[in-house]
């Protein structure tokens, strides 16, 4: 991952800042895609949320002070936007038309793999909003202190919660598999 902190000292709204912003989004669009998928229930919602997150990131870009990694800042804004999107799903606005194949990622040829990923997302979405955010960051490989920084919980509390969420998620998945005779 390229560190972009040095590039954020430019004056906001200059053409150069926009170029840097685009670079950061291109570098980390997978992060935005995953948050969009976690906080939406259809492909259309997913597209809307993806764009909302990019918009919010751009709006907040000037407030980034290099006090944390750029991805830590991005996770925070993306997850916060996801929360506010929870009840907006049904209310559509005119949006940028995106290439369907681009956002409908990952392009997986193996159907059973796709099913596995869908099932994984479906089970994560069944968790409550607190659990969903924490386990997402954990699965993204974030350390407890970074999760604590993004979420605002203490490091100890994160440790306790992760233990509980892991158990809950696995029992949900196993129950679902048993129900489907897998």
């Amino acid at each position: 991952m390229i560190h972009h902190s040095h590039i954020l000292d430019m004056s906001y709204n200059s053409g150069e800042t926009k170029i840097r912003f685009i670079e950061i989004i291109r570098e980390n669009d997978g992060l935005i895609y995953k948050v969009s998928k976690m906080y939406s229930n259809s492909f259309e919602d997913e597209q809307d949320l993806f764009q909302d997150i990019v918009y919010q990131l751009w709006k907040s870009f000037s407030s980034f002070r290099n006090e944390s990694k750029i991805t830590t800042w991005m996770y925070r804004i993306a997850l916060n936007t996801g929360i506010h999107y929870l009840d907006k799903g049904k209310k559509k606005a005119h949006k940028v038309s995106l290439d369907e194949t681009l956002l409908n990622r990952p392009e997986i040829i193996d159907e059973s793999k796709q099913d596995q990923y869908d099932m994984m997302f479906a089970q994560i979405k069944r968790l409550n909003d607190i659990e969903r955010g924490i386990i997402f960051l954990y699965l993204e490989g974030k350390a407890h202190d970074e999760i604590a920084m993004i979420t605002g919980f203490t490091i100890t509390n994160i440790g306790t919660r992760i233990g509980r969420i892991k158990q809950k998620l696995i029992s949900q998945i196993n129950l679902n598999k048993a129900g489907n005779g897998i």
Partner: peptide
């Protein structure tokens, strides 16, 4: 589950990136 997530994330990161023009449009949504 963690391995599945990593595998999926890897696939996502290796795929085609968003076009610059699309990102610019997203920052200018009315």
């Amino acid at each position: 589950l963690e391995n599945q997530w990593k595998e999926m994330s890897g696939k996502i990161d290796n795929q085609k990136k968003l076009a610059d023009s699309k990102i610019i449009k997203m920052t200018e949504i009315n």
